[in-house]
């Protein structure tokens, strides 16, 4: 996996007892086109607060171009932004 740290649009749902659960996300490609990726499985999630900045980290996998790909997306709690951290 390579670190890319890119802003992404995310559709997520929030369960009563848990935090956000991402369903799918959209990422801008270099040629301005958009790719939508459905999150097939959240392998695990954890919370980190490096530098006092809390983030929820989701390690997920999806079928991208017929290849089962593992990647990590992050939710920054202070700014309510989602990032594709590494893929």
């Amino acid at each position: 996996m390579k670190v890319i740290m890119k802003n992404i649009d995310v559709i997520a749902w929030f369960e009563q007892t848990k935090g956000p659960i991402p369903l799918k996300f959209r990422i801008k490609n270099k040629d301005e086109s958009q790719t939508i990726i459905k999150i097939d499985k959240i392998c695990f999630q954890k919370k980190e607060k490096l530098a006092g900045n809390p983030m929820i980290i989701f390690t997920c996998q999806s079928l991208i171009n017929n290849v089962l790909t593992k990647y990590e997306i992050r939710y920054e709690i202070n700014t309510c932004k989602w990032y594709l951290y590494k893929i």
């Binding site: 670190v3 890319i4 740290m5 490096l50 530098a51 006092g52 900045n53 990032y83 951290y85 590494k86």
Partner: peptide, 13 residues
């Protein structure tokens, strides 16, 4: 160190 770990978190290698 605070700046460094913030940058690491923000994806700086």
């Amino acid at each position: 160190s605070w700046e460094a770990c913030y940058r690491l978190q923000q994806g700086d290698l």
